[in-house]
Design a protein around this nucleic acid. Structure first.
Length: 351
DNA sequence: GATCCGTGGCT
DNA sequence: TAGCCAAGGAT
């Protein structure tokens, strides 16, 4: 790992590029507004950064708007019910983020008078906030010169310095190099600029090097290796798991649901009753009845496995009590509050 | 350090 | 299509 660098690209060139090419985002204060003295809302910065973890800007936009409309301040969010927030997050994925979002909001509201800390170390202690997000909040919300290192930055830096070490082993070196480039001025603009550069110019497959503000200071451009960087270890193939989802309708239209256990996969989310998921289909109905097996099998891809869900359907009488779960009446049940895999099950019955 | 944790889009 | 990728964090 190198400990010094030469032919360092100029941060001001990137900032100049950003002044004219900054993307518009609902949570972003662009370079012109910043220059005129407008400051970002730390609540908005934090909320957007949590949502953007491993998630595309396009996916986040409607959720950010929904959250800031329902809960305009961190106090509003802190006072919300768990099931409201989990339901509003449904479909965005990585549901531990939603659980930690609420923990953090309540902590900030009660113990910090609703104010986010500014220092990296203090931010890092917040639930759901790791090194990237702590740097992002410090730099973007408060213009403190911390260095953001996300997937975009790792790609940009590995190309600028032609680093061939495989990720994740290269993380330390890439962070070190990224820090050497970070200017002491315009920290918020710079953090967003280098990520914009990665997202719109220094793209994974086909980088647009000919219009890159750092073209003349890019080692991999010179070596012709850009498209092969960063190098990564190959991921193992996903296994297939099997399970059964149970769609129970009561004659009054109520639907049997259950809240999943608070941790792990889809933890804390509203769900349709389901068997455990494993190597084979294992029947575990949540209520007695004359079950109908649906033809279509719902398929879904998770982070580390594929799921094949057999769907069973039954209609039951008013007085029947389930072995587990809770009936929700039509005005209490919103399929949009289900995680995507269970929304697919619901759609397979209703459409 | 390795594993777990969603979902949608793109090639 | 099967794999890759996206403003990562917790354990």
């Amino acid at each position: 790992m190198r400990t010094s660098i030469e032919n360092k690209p100029n941060p001001n060139k990137l900032l100049d590029w950003y002044d004219y090419n900054a993307r518009e985002m609902p949570w972003r204060i662009g370079p012109k507004k910043r220059l005129s003295g407008v400051r970002p809302n730390p609540y908005h910065v934090w909320l957007s950064e949590i949502m953007l973890q491993q998630t595309t800007v396009a996916s986040v936009k409607p959720y950010f708007t929904k959250f800031t409309t329902k809960w305009p301040t961190i106090f509003d969010l802190a006072n919300a019910k768990d099931e409201e927030v989990m339901g509003a997050w449904a479909g965005l994925g990585y549901y531990a983020r939603a659980r930690n979002l609420l923990k953090c909001a309540r902590l900030i509201a009660k113990e910090k008078s609703g104010k986010f800390p500014q220092a990296f170390d203090a931010l890092l202690k917040l639930p759901g906030v790791g090194p990237y997000t702590a740097s992002a909040i410090a730099s973007i919300a408060y213009d403190i010169p911390e260095t953001v290192v996300d997937g975009n930055v790792e790609r940009v830096i590995s190309r600028i310095f032609d680093v061939h070490t495989e990720l994740p082993k290269a993380k330390k070196e890439l962070s070190f190099l990224a820090k050497q480039l970070t200017p002491k001025i315009r920290s918020g603009d710079y953090a967003q600029a280098i990520m914009d550069l990665g997202a719109t110019i220094c793209k994974p497959k086909v980088p647009s090097c000919d219009i890159c503000p750092w073209e003349n200071h890019c080692d991999s451009r010179k070596a012709g290796t850009s498209k092969y960087l960063p190098r990564k270890v190959k991921k193992t193939k996903k296994q297939v798991r099997y399970g059964i989802a149970y769609f129970v309708e009561r004659v009054d239209g109520a639907i049997l649901t259950e809240i999943r256990q608070p941790n792990g996969l889809l933890g804390g989310m509203l769900s349709l009753p389901s068997s455990a998921w494993g190597d084979s289909f294992r029947d575990d109905p949540p209520i007695d009845g004359d079950w109908e097996i649906k033809d279509a099998i719902v398929k879904h891809t998770f982070t580390h496995f594929y799921l094949n869900l057999k769907v069973m359907h039954v209609t039951v009488e008013l007085e029947q009590t389930p072995k587990r779960g809770q009936f929700l009446k039509p005005d209490e049940f919103d399929p949009n509050n289900l995680p995507t895999v269970m929304r697919k099950v619901w759609q397979s019955i209703k459409y």
